[in-house]
Amino acid sequence: MTPVGQLPDLSGLRSLLAEWRGHAGYLVEYVGPRAIPLGNNGDELLGRVFLRVLRDLGITLVRRPSDASVLLVRPGGALLDRYQAPALLAGRLAQLPDLPLIIFPHSSWFERDDPATMFAGRRSRTLWISREERSHRHLRDAWGESLARAGVTLELDHDMVVSGNSYVAQALGAVTGRTGVDDGLLLVARLGVEAGRMNEPIDRGTWYRQLAVRGLRRLPHRTLVSIRQRTTRDRQIAANSRMLTKVSSELATSRMSMSPWCFDISDPSLASFDEFARAISGAAAAVTDRLHVAVPAAILGKRTFLVESGYHKAGGVYEHSLRDMEAITFVRRT
Protein backbone atom coordinates (compact mmCIF):
# COMPACT_ATOMS: atom_id res chain seq x y z
CA MET A 1 0.00 0.00 0.00
CA THR A 2 1.04 3.61 -0.55
CA PRO A 3 2.43 5.60 2.39
CA VAL A 4 2.04 9.38 2.34
CA GLY A 5 5.59 9.85 1.09
CA GLN A 6 4.73 7.99 -2.12
CA LEU A 7 1.54 9.83 -3.02
CA PRO A 8 1.51 11.72 -6.33
CA ASP A 9 3.71 14.79 -6.09
CA LEU A 10 4.12 18.06 -7.96
CA SER A 11 6.26 16.69 -10.78
CA GLY A 12 3.31 16.61 -13.20
CA LEU A 13 2.39 20.23 -12.54
CA ARG A 14 6.01 21.31 -12.76
CA SER A 15 6.21 19.78 -16.21
CA LEU A 16 2.90 21.23 -17.41
CA LEU A 17 3.74 24.72 -16.14
CA ALA A 18 7.50 24.86 -16.75
CA GLU A 19 7.15 27.76 -19.20
CA TRP A 20 5.53 29.92 -16.49
CA ARG A 21 8.31 29.59 -13.93
CA GLY A 22 9.49 33.07 -12.97
CA HIS A 23 6.29 34.72 -14.25
CA ALA A 24 3.71 36.85 -12.46
CA GLY A 25 0.14 35.54 -12.17
CA TYR A 26 -3.15 37.25 -11.37
CA LEU A 27 -5.72 35.20 -9.46
CA VAL A 28 -9.22 35.24 -10.98
CA GLU A 29 -11.70 34.44 -8.21
CA TYR A 30 -15.30 33.21 -8.23
CA VAL A 31 -16.86 36.12 -6.38
CA GLY A 32 -20.50 36.05 -5.25
CA PRO A 33 -22.74 38.75 -3.75
CA ARG A 34 -21.05 41.43 -1.64
CA ALA A 35 -17.71 40.48 -3.29
CA ILE A 36 -17.40 37.35 -1.10
CA PRO A 37 -15.35 34.54 -2.71
CA LEU A 38 -17.28 31.29 -3.09
CA GLY A 39 -16.16 28.11 -1.36
CA ASN A 40 -16.21 26.09 1.85
CA ASN A 41 -13.60 25.18 4.45
CA GLY A 42 -12.31 22.40 2.22
CA ASP A 43 -11.77 24.98 -0.52
CA GLU A 44 -9.92 27.16 2.01
CA LEU A 45 -7.56 24.26 2.75
CA LEU A 46 -7.13 23.66 -0.97
CA GLY A 47 -6.43 27.36 -1.46
CA ARG A 48 -3.77 27.41 1.26
CA VAL A 49 -2.00 24.44 -0.29
CA PHE A 50 -2.35 26.08 -3.72
CA LEU A 51 -0.62 29.28 -2.58
CA ARG A 52 2.29 27.26 -1.21
CA VAL A 53 2.48 25.23 -4.41
CA LEU A 54 2.63 28.41 -6.51
CA ARG A 55 5.85 29.33 -4.71
CA ASP A 56 7.18 25.86 -5.50
CA LEU A 57 6.27 26.34 -9.17
CA GLY A 58 8.01 29.72 -9.28
CA ILE A 59 4.84 31.72 -10.01
CA THR A 60 4.42 35.02 -8.14
CA LEU A 61 0.96 36.46 -7.44
CA VAL A 62 0.35 40.13 -8.23
CA ARG A 63 -2.55 42.38 -7.22
CA ARG A 64 -3.38 43.82 -10.65
CA PRO A 65 -3.90 42.00 -13.95
CA SER A 66 -1.87 44.71 -15.69
CA ASP A 67 1.19 43.44 -13.78
CA ALA A 68 0.61 39.79 -14.72
CA SER A 69 1.64 37.67 -17.67
CA VAL A 70 -0.89 34.90 -16.95
CA LEU A 71 -4.30 34.51 -15.31
CA LEU A 72 -4.80 31.78 -12.69
CA VAL A 73 -7.95 30.00 -11.49
CA ARG A 74 -7.43 28.23 -8.18
CA PRO A 75 -8.08 24.45 -7.99
CA GLY A 76 -11.42 23.02 -6.89
CA GLY A 77 -14.64 21.30 -7.90
CA ALA A 78 -16.97 24.18 -8.73
CA LEU A 79 -16.93 24.09 -12.54
CA LEU A 80 -20.34 22.48 -13.04
CA ASP A 81 -23.09 23.95 -15.17
CA ARG A 82 -25.56 23.76 -12.27
CA TYR A 83 -23.33 25.95 -10.09
CA GLN A 84 -22.65 29.70 -10.18
CA ALA A 85 -18.91 29.43 -10.78
CA PRO A 86 -18.92 29.05 -14.62
CA ALA A 87 -21.05 32.18 -15.10
CA LEU A 88 -19.02 34.15 -12.55
CA LEU A 89 -15.78 33.04 -14.20
CA ALA A 90 -17.06 33.91 -17.68
CA GLY A 91 -17.90 37.42 -16.49
CA ARG A 92 -14.40 37.98 -15.11
CA LEU A 93 -12.66 36.49 -18.13
CA ALA A 94 -14.63 38.75 -20.49
CA GLN A 95 -12.86 41.68 -18.81
CA LEU A 96 -9.42 40.11 -19.33
CA PRO A 97 -9.40 38.69 -22.88
CA ASP A 98 -5.73 39.06 -23.74
CA LEU A 99 -3.85 37.19 -21.01
CA PRO A 100 -3.23 33.42 -21.13
CA LEU A 101 -5.21 31.44 -18.55
CA ILE A 102 -4.40 28.42 -16.38
CA ILE A 103 -7.24 26.56 -14.65
CA PHE A 104 -5.53 24.58 -11.91
CA PRO A 105 -6.67 20.98 -11.21
CA HIS A 106 -10.46 20.85 -11.16
CA SER A 107 -13.34 18.43 -11.26
CA SER A 108 -15.94 19.41 -13.86
CA TRP A 109 -19.31 18.39 -15.19
CA PHE A 110 -21.22 20.25 -17.93
CA GLU A 111 -24.40 18.31 -18.55
CA ARG A 112 -26.25 20.90 -20.67
CA ASP A 113 -24.17 24.05 -21.17
CA ASP A 114 -21.10 24.16 -23.41
CA PRO A 115 -18.13 25.13 -21.20
CA ALA A 116 -16.53 26.85 -24.20
CA THR A 117 -18.92 29.77 -23.61
CA MET A 118 -16.80 30.70 -20.57
CA PHE A 119 -14.02 31.68 -22.97
CA ALA A 120 -16.09 33.62 -25.52
CA GLY A 121 -14.17 36.55 -26.98
CA ARG A 122 -10.84 35.55 -25.46
CA ARG A 123 -7.83 36.20 -27.66
CA SER A 124 -5.33 34.12 -25.73
CA ARG A 125 -4.89 30.45 -24.92
CA THR A 126 -6.22 28.49 -21.94
CA LEU A 127 -4.74 25.46 -20.17
CA TRP A 128 -7.48 23.56 -18.29
CA ILE A 129 -6.11 20.89 -15.94
CA SER A 130 -8.41 18.21 -14.53
CA ARG A 131 -7.65 16.54 -11.21
CA GLU A 132 -9.06 13.14 -12.16
CA GLU A 133 -9.61 11.08 -15.28
CA ARG A 134 -13.41 11.17 -15.24
CA SER A 135 -13.56 14.97 -15.56
CA HIS A 136 -10.77 14.99 -18.15
CA ARG A 137 -12.54 12.36 -20.23
CA HIS A 138 -15.90 14.13 -19.88
CA LEU A 139 -14.52 17.45 -21.13
CA ARG A 140 -12.59 15.79 -23.95
CA ASP A 141 -15.38 13.53 -25.19
CA ALA A 142 -18.42 15.77 -24.70
CA TRP A 143 -16.98 19.22 -25.39
CA GLY A 144 -13.48 18.73 -26.82
CA GLU A 145 -14.17 20.20 -30.28
CA SER A 146 -15.80 23.41 -29.05
CA LEU A 147 -13.15 23.86 -26.36
CA ALA A 148 -10.39 23.45 -28.95
CA ARG A 149 -12.01 26.13 -31.10
CA ALA A 150 -11.99 28.40 -28.03
CA GLY A 151 -8.23 27.88 -27.66
CA VAL A 152 -8.46 25.52 -24.68
CA THR A 153 -5.95 22.72 -24.13
CA LEU A 154 -7.05 19.92 -21.76
CA GLU A 155 -4.53 18.22 -19.46
CA LEU A 156 -4.67 15.84 -16.49
CA ASP A 157 -2.87 15.93 -13.15
CA HIS A 158 -3.93 15.28 -9.52
CA ASP A 159 -5.97 16.94 -6.80
CA MET A 160 -3.71 19.61 -5.33
CA VAL A 161 -4.16 18.58 -1.68
CA VAL A 162 -2.92 15.15 -2.80
CA SER A 163 0.02 16.36 -4.91
CA GLY A 164 0.81 19.08 -2.35
CA ASN A 165 0.47 16.66 0.57
CA SER A 166 3.74 17.79 2.15
CA TYR A 167 2.10 21.18 2.81
CA VAL A 168 -1.16 19.91 4.33
CA ALA A 169 -0.11 20.02 8.01
CA GLN A 170 1.27 23.52 7.49
CA ALA A 171 -1.95 24.60 5.71
CA LEU A 172 -4.03 23.38 8.64
CA GLY A 173 -2.26 26.05 10.64
CA ALA A 174 -2.30 26.36 14.40
CA VAL A 175 -3.61 22.85 15.00
CA THR A 176 -0.44 21.08 13.87
CA GLY A 177 0.57 20.80 17.53
CA ARG A 178 -2.35 18.43 18.17
CA THR A 179 -0.47 15.37 16.93
CA GLY A 180 -1.60 12.28 18.81
CA VAL A 181 -4.85 13.80 20.12
CA ASP A 182 -7.71 11.28 20.01
CA ASP A 183 -11.10 12.99 19.78
CA GLY A 184 -12.74 9.79 18.55
CA LEU A 185 -14.51 9.02 15.28
CA LEU A 186 -15.17 12.08 13.12
CA LEU A 187 -18.43 11.85 11.10
CA VAL A 188 -18.95 14.47 8.42
CA ALA A 189 -21.96 13.97 6.12
CA ARG A 190 -22.87 16.76 3.73
CA LEU A 191 -26.37 18.25 3.73
CA GLY A 192 -26.24 20.37 0.56
CA VAL A 193 -26.83 19.80 -3.15
CA GLU A 194 -24.22 17.06 -3.49
CA ALA A 195 -25.76 14.98 -0.71
CA GLY A 196 -28.02 13.43 -3.37
CA ARG A 197 -27.54 12.36 -6.95
CA MET A 198 -26.48 15.26 -9.11
CA ASN A 199 -28.87 14.41 -11.95
CA GLU A 200 -31.81 15.18 -9.66
CA PRO A 201 -33.36 18.69 -9.70
CA ILE A 202 -32.12 21.07 -7.02
CA ASP A 203 -34.77 21.59 -4.36
CA ARG A 204 -34.34 25.19 -3.24
CA GLY A 205 -37.52 25.18 -1.15
CA THR A 206 -40.36 27.64 -1.21
CA TRP A 207 -40.00 31.30 -2.06
CA TYR A 208 -40.47 32.09 1.65
CA ARG A 209 -37.66 29.72 2.62
CA GLN A 210 -35.31 31.22 0.02
CA LEU A 211 -36.07 34.70 1.34
CA ALA A 212 -35.40 33.54 4.90
CA VAL A 213 -32.07 31.99 3.87
CA ARG A 214 -30.97 35.25 2.22
CA GLY A 215 -31.92 37.09 5.40
CA LEU A 216 -29.95 34.71 7.60
CA ARG A 217 -26.82 35.23 5.51
CA ARG A 218 -26.84 38.90 6.49
CA LEU A 219 -26.48 38.07 10.17
CA PRO A 220 -23.10 38.30 11.95
CA HIS A 221 -21.15 35.14 11.24
CA ARG A 222 -21.08 33.75 14.79
CA THR A 223 -24.82 34.30 15.12
CA LEU A 224 -25.45 32.53 11.82
CA VAL A 225 -23.23 29.60 12.87
CA SER A 226 -25.10 29.19 16.16
CA ILE A 227 -28.51 29.23 14.45
CA ARG A 228 -27.43 26.86 11.70
CA GLN A 229 -25.90 24.35 14.12
CA ARG A 230 -29.15 24.19 16.10
CA THR A 231 -31.53 24.07 13.13
CA THR A 232 -29.56 21.44 11.20
CA ARG A 233 -28.66 19.21 14.16
CA ASP A 234 -31.39 16.59 13.68
CA ARG A 235 -30.81 16.34 9.93
CA GLN A 236 -27.06 16.14 10.49
CA ILE A 237 -27.34 13.34 13.06
CA ALA A 238 -29.60 11.38 10.69
CA ALA A 239 -27.23 11.88 7.75
CA ASN A 240 -24.22 10.91 9.86
CA SER A 241 -26.01 7.76 11.04
CA ARG A 242 -26.94 6.70 7.50
CA MET A 243 -23.35 7.20 6.40
CA LEU A 244 -21.92 5.31 9.37
CA THR A 245 -24.19 2.33 8.59
CA LYS A 246 -22.39 1.92 5.25
CA VAL A 247 -19.02 1.28 6.92
CA SER A 248 -20.01 -0.25 10.28
CA SER A 249 -18.95 -3.73 9.24
CA GLU A 250 -15.41 -2.49 8.47
CA LEU A 251 -14.96 -0.12 11.40
CA ALA A 252 -14.93 -1.27 15.01
CA THR A 253 -17.10 1.62 16.25
CA SER A 254 -17.98 -0.19 19.48
CA ARG A 255 -14.43 0.38 20.68
CA MET A 256 -14.28 4.03 19.57
CA SER A 257 -15.77 7.18 21.05
CA MET A 258 -17.50 9.73 18.82
CA SER A 259 -15.91 13.06 18.00
CA PRO A 260 -17.64 16.07 19.60
CA TRP A 261 -17.91 17.68 16.14
CA CYS A 262 -21.45 16.64 15.19
CA PHE A 263 -22.01 19.02 12.27
CA ASP A 264 -20.61 19.47 8.77
CA ILE A 265 -17.26 21.05 9.53
CA SER A 266 -16.73 21.82 5.82
CA ASP A 267 -19.65 24.25 5.75
CA PRO A 268 -18.46 27.75 6.77
CA SER A 269 -21.97 28.56 8.01
CA LEU A 270 -21.56 25.72 10.53
CA ALA A 271 -17.85 25.84 11.43
CA SER A 272 -14.86 28.13 11.11
CA PHE A 273 -11.73 27.01 9.28
CA ASP A 274 -9.92 26.67 12.62
CA GLU A 275 -12.67 24.35 13.86
CA PHE A 276 -12.48 22.39 10.59
CA ALA A 277 -8.72 22.01 11.04
CA ARG A 278 -8.92 21.07 14.73
CA ALA A 279 -11.58 18.44 14.08
CA ILE A 280 -9.52 16.70 11.39
CA SER A 281 -6.23 16.96 13.24
CA GLY A 282 -7.67 15.63 16.48
CA ALA A 283 -9.73 12.74 15.10
CA ALA A 284 -8.80 9.10 15.64
CA ALA A 285 -10.58 8.10 12.40
CA ALA A 286 -12.96 9.69 9.91
CA VAL A 287 -16.05 8.68 7.94
CA THR A 288 -17.14 11.32 5.45
CA ASP A 289 -18.57 12.04 2.02
CA ARG A 290 -16.56 15.28 1.92
CA LEU A 291 -13.48 14.82 -0.28
CA HIS A 292 -11.48 17.51 1.46
CA VAL A 293 -12.17 16.10 4.88
CA ALA A 294 -11.15 12.60 3.79
CA VAL A 295 -7.94 13.56 1.97
CA PRO A 296 -6.23 15.57 4.75
CA ALA A 297 -7.42 13.06 7.36
CA ALA A 298 -5.77 10.22 5.43
CA ILE A 299 -2.63 12.29 4.81
CA LEU A 300 -2.39 12.87 8.58
CA GLY A 301 -2.56 9.09 9.04
CA LYS A 302 -6.18 8.76 10.21
CA ARG A 303 -8.12 5.63 9.24
CA THR A 304 -10.50 7.16 6.71
CA PHE A 305 -13.62 6.06 4.85
CA LEU A 306 -14.65 8.23 1.89
CA VAL A 307 -18.30 7.60 1.04
CA GLU A 308 -19.49 8.31 -2.50
CA SER A 309 -21.77 11.33 -2.86
CA GLY A 310 -22.85 13.82 -5.51
CA TYR A 311 -21.12 13.62 -8.89
CA HIS A 312 -17.97 11.80 -9.90
CA LYS A 313 -15.32 13.90 -8.17
CA ALA A 314 -14.79 11.80 -5.01
CA GLY A 315 -14.63 8.50 -6.88
CA GLY A 316 -12.54 10.10 -9.61
CA VAL A 317 -9.92 11.48 -7.21
CA TYR A 318 -9.84 8.20 -5.29
CA GLU A 319 -9.32 6.11 -8.44
CA HIS A 320 -6.77 8.46 -9.98
CA SER A 321 -4.70 9.41 -6.94
CA LEU A 322 -5.61 7.55 -3.73
CA ARG A 323 -6.56 3.96 -4.45
CA ASP A 324 -3.20 2.57 -3.28
CA MET A 325 -3.11 4.61 -0.08
CA GLU A 326 -3.44 2.35 2.94
CA ALA A 327 -5.23 4.80 5.22
CA ILE A 328 -8.26 5.43 2.97
CA THR A 329 -11.14 3.22 1.80
CA PHE A 330 -13.67 4.33 -0.82
CA VAL A 331 -17.28 3.25 -0.20
CA ARG A 332 -19.45 3.28 -3.31
CA ARG A 333 -23.06 4.39 -3.34
CA THR A 334 -25.54 1.49 -3.25
Rank of each mutant, 00 (worst) to 15 (best):
L80E: 13
D9C: 02
R228N: 13
S107C: 00
R255H: 09
R92V: 03
V317F: 02
R278A: 13
L185E: 15
G177I: 07
H138K: 01
A284G: 15
R278P: 01
G205W: 04
V73Q: 01
H312C: 09
V317N: 03
R222Y: 01
F50A: 06
T60C: 11
V225Y: 07
R228I: 01
Q229V: 06
M198R: 07
A271N: 03
S166G: 10
W20Y: 15
Q95K: 14
T334F: 08
L61E: 00
R92L: 00
P100L: 03
P100R: 00
E326F: 04
W261P: 09
D264T: 05
G192Y: 05
P8S: 01
G316Y: 00
Y83R: 11
R332A: 13
L191G: 14
T60A: 13
G301C: 14
S166K: 14
G25T: 01
S249V: 08
S124H: 09
W207A: 15
F305Q: 10
L80M: 09
H136C: 04
G91S: 10
P37I: 06
S321N: 01
I227W: 12
V28L: 06
H292L: 04
S226F: 03
R55V: 03
V4D: 07
V225T: 13
A24K: 15
T304F: 11
L54M: 13
L306V: 10
E111Q: 02
A195P: 00
L96P: 03
Q236T: 14
P97A: 12
S124M: 04
R218D: 02
P268A: 02
F330S: 05
L38K: 05
D98M: 11
S321R: 11
L186R: 09
D113M: 09
H312G: 11
S272R: 04
A327N: 08
L224M: 07
T206K: 08
S254V: 12
E275M: 09
R218H: 06
G310M: 08
S130Q: 10
N40M: 03
G39D: 01
K302Y: 11
D274T: 07
L17N: 05
A169E: 10
A150G: 12
S269L: 10
P220F: 02
R197W: 03
Q236E: 09
E194G: 09
G77T: 05
N199M: 01
S248R: 15
L80T: 12
D113G: 02
K313L: 05
D324M: 04
Q236C: 04
L10R: 14
A271T: 03
R233F: 12
A286K: 12
L186P: 08
V152P: 07
R123S: 11
A279S: 13
L27N: 04
H320S: 08
D182H: 10
T60P: 07
A283D: 01
E326K: 14
R332P: 02
S107N: 02
S107V: 00
T334S: 02
A68D: 00
G192W: 06
Y30A: 15
D9F: 01
L211I: 08
I59K: 04
L45V: 11
V49D: 02
D56E: 15
M243L: 09
D159P: 03
L45A: 06
G184H: 03
M1N: 04
D113E: 14
G177R: 13
F50Y: 07
T245N: 12
A279P: 05
P37C: 03
R278L: 06
L61R: 08
